[in-house]
Design a protein around this nucleic acid. Structure first.
Lengths: 338, 338
DNA sequence: TTGTTTTGTGTAAGCGTTTACATTTCATAT
DNA sequence: ATATGAAATGTAAACGCTTACACAAAACAA
């Protein structure tokens, strides 16, 4: 059995309060005592029990992280950065992957409602907005702990959002492609999460403001059952066979963009001469294809740093901005000419 | 402030023991009482405090997961599967990313030694073997909780290993390439983790058993500072300019293989006609390049399922196999001819 | 009825900490 | 020496839960 603070106190011939003080770096301990206690601790290898500690402190020093699927390249990066940041500030993280089917939200109910966490981070915009019930859920959580949302906006007390201005980023990127002379741009997306909607809005806004005709015909939604790159590229092929010609594809994420590249390659379309392709997220996938993929970087690392900073501020009782917006930047590679 | 079991007991006009029993599904509660308590709980939205619960139960129902970098594609998948499996069995997971620099092992010391976890999972073979001191660390941990190691072998009491027979997988893949007529095969690797060593051994063994001449000259270690795909492919170009010709590249993981493909493309070498390329892990990257990458699948999902099953068995006091080995399978795509 | 199980519920101790408050020790000023 | 206050340490309650044990109620047998 593990040693307790009590065992240490006896061995060191002091009270448990003193041991606790040493452990917590209280200034009111004589140097000699501190050393004596520390020596015993080192010798016997005592480590505090954090459940007990949590009871005493009424805080777990733990943050819950909810994300749909931590094996998704983008989300995995986000989770990783968050984890690193939290750890650097003495917090642990409790990861919980909810999956995309929102009805199984009881899954993560467990975590949050067991309220051992001091705060909650929702990673990815797919937590927002599908149904009223879901939003209510976030509100309920925010009643117990501060809720941080990465990559989506949600206005409510005790809810803080850190995000990239996806709409604007997409607007600018689309405009840039348009201005370079490509006026028939296909927009490729799958699920319409919060940020998914914003991106689509950005595309639409850009096309509209350039008076592009009938761009709605070039908006291609990949069916839900097309998950693999191959299936997506097949779907694009099918879509292209029925739609009017296009010379640009803007995809809602890098994986879709890769599928677009595959589509072009299978159909003998040359990139970027006959077709420009643009991805989103600037993930490692951009380097894996040939030509390498132009993509929009949403500054994920900066966002996560800001998120943790905000969260710590909130936990410390400070007033913090409820919404922090970063702007994405276009990383030009070889699937585009501009 | 959150409600406690005490509040509920008063509202329901029963004792806290009864509430606790209801909560824990004890059979010795009258149906009427159970309903009364449940109604109150639902009405007021009580949720148990898991720190307190952990103190009572002397178990956190939490498993610590240690991995170097959860944003690595392979590790992220592993972590995800583990998380899912644990959750399905009522356990939570505490993720801790240690980074690759082992001297900062104090980082994860925190986690384990705070022993709130019921078990520990080490994800990835880079936890094993570099130094004696590191191994000692694992032994120390295993004295407190069962230690599960994914993807590496380590023989010790209370340590359980689940892994893929990387050596054999690599041996078979190399042999298959060799037998297809490609006898000058370059082996590309970066860090030599436990499984990294095994893979290299497998390559060597295959080359040796086929009496391939001077294959040691074709073993290419990427320097530690070559992290990006681009840097790696440049390094391969440089290596190739000095080495004798080769017509196959076997890489220790998919990312290295992608870099190999990039090398070929930059130098006008046609894949698979002039050069066959083989990756490892069968990650999503295999679908991103053109031609698509032949790779070895190490059955990660099966492994993780087995790991969790073993862990739960150990926690339940059952006798469990200390070592479970799966074998990888070659997934043939278009970077190879065989 | 009375005694004997069986079943359901309550009481209280314990889990390992933190910390307000009480107490002791010690240095300094008188 | 003695009083005084500061510094160091100890005592004990609290945190919210589980559970062994004690006890009461209900069900059954005689």
């Amino acid at each position: 059995m593990s040693l307790t603070i009590y065992d240490i106190s006896k061995k060191a011939d002091v009270s448990i309060a003193t041991v606790s003080r040493v452990l917590n770096g209280s200034p009111k301990v004589k140097e000699a005592t501190r050393k004596k206690v520390m020596d015993i601790i080192d010798e016997y290898g005592y480590t505090p029990n954090s459940s007990a500690r949590a009871m005493g402190l009424k805080s777990m020093k733990t943050i819950g992280i909810l994300c749909a699927d931590s094996s998704d390249i983008f989300l995995a990066k986000a989770v990783y950065y968050l984890e690193q940041n939290l750890q650097a500030h003495g917090y642990e993280s409790l990861l919980c992957c909810t999956g995309y089917n929102m009805d199984s939200k009881k899954n993560y109910a467990n975590l949050i409602l067991s309220k051992k966490v001091d705060g909650l981070i929702l990673v990815g915009s797919n937590f927002i907005g599908s149904t009223e019930e879901e939003n209510q859920y976030i509100i309920d959580c925010s009643a117990k702990v501060p809720v941080m949302i990465l990559n989506a906006s949600f206005r409510h007390d005790n809810v803080y959002c850190i995000l990239c201005d996806d709409m604007n980023s997409m607007y600018r990127a689309t405009s840039e492609m348009y201005d370079s002379g490509i006026t028939d741009i296909l927009y490729l997306y799958d699920v319409l999460s919060y940020s998914g909607k914003k991106k689509l809005d950005g595309y639409r806004m850009a096309m509209q403001s350039h008076h592009a005709p009938d761009y709605e015909d070039l908006i291609c939604k990949v069916p839900d059952d097309c998950k693999s790159i191959e299936a997506i590229s097949d779907y694009v092929t099918e879509f292209a066979s029925k739609s009017r010609p296009f010379h640009g594809i803007i995809a809602a994420d890098d994986q879709l963009a890769i599928a677009a590249i595959k589509y072009a390659q299978k159909n003998g379309i040359s990139i970027p001469d006959d077709l420009s392709v643009l991805g989103y997220n600037n993930s490692i996938l951009t380097h894996c294809c040939t030509p390498e993929l132009t993509s929009i970087d949403s500054q994920l690392e900066t966002q996560t740093r800001s998120l943790v900073k905000t969260l710590l501020g909130v936990l410390a009782g400070q007033e913090m901005p409820q919404k922090t917006v970063f702007s994405g930047s276009l990383i030009k590679r070889s699937t585009t000419n501009f």
